[in-house]
């Protein structure tokens, strides 16, 4: 751990964090867990490979998934992220009132057992859905698109199929994410 400190502030789940003096080589995941008490983002391999630590970075290129375990606060400084705690709607006391479509679909499809990988899958599927809002794909390309988006995430319990099916169902049942949907909607008088 470096002795050098860095003053860091970023936007997490829509709120700006208080500027904090952090070791300059601190990783984003440790900042989330140890400094902000946002413990939902998981530590898996620590090498950016398993994607249990995936969070959404809202940058200039739109939402993209990054591995928080290998992304330093030096890069995260001044940027905007969404963690698993920021997806569902909450009431004024912080209680969850409404899950997102992706989260609900994962529950409905029994997509996970131990759930360790789930925050990463929620991030990957949500970022995909949001990218499709801006750039929809043909319905027959959805299967492949979902596979490509979720392929980096590792799950050791259920074998992926239920995550893939849940994400595919969300995309196919949400207007505007596939091109035929766009065509049908535009065709209505």
């Amino acid at each position: 751990m470096s002795d050098s400190m860095l003053t860091v502030s970023m936007r997490i789940n829509g709120s700006d964090t208080e500027p904090a003096d952090l070791p300059e080589d601190l990783m984003l995941l440790e900042y989330l867990q140890e400094y902000l008490n946002l413990t939902g983002t998981r530590y898996g391999c620590g090498q950016g490979v398993c994607r249990a630590c995936a969070v959404i970075h809202d940058g200039a290129n739109g939402p993209e998934v990054i591995a928080a375990c290998i992304t330093g606060v030096a890069w995260a400084n001044g940027r905007s992220f969404r963690t698993i705690e920021g997806h569902a709607s909450r009431d004024i006391e912080g209680n969850v009132t409404q899950l997102t479509a992706v989260q609900q679909a994962f529950l409905d499809h029994f997509s996970f057992q131990c759930s360790y990988c789930t925050p990463g899958f929620v991030a990957a599927a949500t970022a995909l859905v949001e990218r499709l809002e801006a750039a929809p794909v043909a319905r027959d390309a959805v299967e492949e698109t979902v596979l490509n988006a979720l392929n980096p995430n590792i799950c050791r319990c259920t074998g992926y199929v239920r995550y893939l099916e849940a994400t595919r169902d969300v995309i196919l049942s949400t207007p505007g994410l596939t091109t035929e949907e766009v065509a049908e909607r535009d065709a209505q008088p």
């Binding site: 470096s2 090498q47 375990c69 330093g72 606060v73």
Partner: peptide
């Protein structure tokens, strides 16, 4: 380097 490389 610290933000993108040092993690690994």
């Amino acid at each position: 380097y610290l933000g993108l490389c040092a993690g690994c």
